[in-house]
Design a protein around this nucleic acid. Structure first.
Lengths: 146, 146
DNA sequence: GTACATGCAAACGGTTTGCATATCT
DNA sequence: AGATATGCAAACCGTTTGCATGTAC
């Protein structure tokens, strides 16, 4: 059973209307493998239903976000979406060269978070945390070039 | 002597044309205290010269960035600019509530950087690093409310 | 049947560009 | 004088909104 079927059940239970468009958007995100930009979601969903409008995608994404179905991640100034999975909270490392995004366990940030809190009283919102840089592949390729 | 006078000398030396608009934009950033959004720079500079156009501000900021005079920082999906100061490299903590931005010494991130590099081969670009969250004041205020 | 979601087109805000004119060196 | 920066207006792109129509329940 595809993971998003459960979500659909839940939405139905909450009295949310399940339109084909909404199901498509959800599937697109689920199958896209996370970190999907609006345009990506739009194009992918549009393949199955060409009449789909971007406005609907935006409205649906906002709805899903409000319902906690998807999580919005700011990655390099661009907004991306992924299915919310409470069991697997994570942060992101984003490659500036290839645009790839990699998950990062919260464990790596705990110490930094504590330090900022103690030193400055600053409460980091680690939910929206991303580090940009070069992924292993791209770093390697760059090394070879130079 | 205002700090940006040195910069102006340098630009002149490099054969860059020193127009009033450019000087104004530079002063605006210097006096604005860092982390200035485009609009802020524009409004501030416009006070001294009302004919100033946003397009000029954009062109000037891009130029300054290319010349290394200013550094562009992505803060909460918004682009902000600050004078480049090689002697005082730093990162940023940005408050989601009040929009305030605070400097953070690189020392706090060294360990994290090393870990990412060793564990994943990921080379973080800490130059463009910001943590968002709540600053001490806003966190306090929020506590009191609830 | 009714409330609400959709498609479409138009509005929007921030950024960029083309062009004729003005300005710096 | 010559190269180039400016102001202005228009183009641009991603996102949002108003509205008449269609659809899930």
């Amino acid at each position: 059973m595809p993971s998003h079927t459960l979500v659909l059940e839940r939405l139905k239970g909450q009295g949310i209307r399940l339109t084909p468009q909404r199901i498509l958007v959800l599937s697109a995100i689920a199958e896209g493998g996370g970190h999907m930009g609006v345009e990506e979601v739009y194009l992918r969903a549009k393949e199955s239903y060409p009449y789909l409008d971007v406005a609907t995608v935006y409205r649906t994404l906002h709805l899903f976000k409000k319902l906690g179905v998807v999580t919005e991640v700011a990655i390099g100034g661009q907004l991306r979406f992924e299915l919310t999975d409470a069991d697997r909270k994570h942060h992101h490392m984003v490659c500036q060269a290839c645009g790839g995004a990699f998950d990062l366990s919260p464990a790596y940030l705990e110490e930094l978070g504590q330090t900022l809190k103690q030193q400055f009283g600053f409460e980091p919102d680690l939910d929206n945390f991303t580090v940009s840089g070069l992924c292993a592949n791209c770093a390697q390729r760059r090394m070879e070039k130079e």
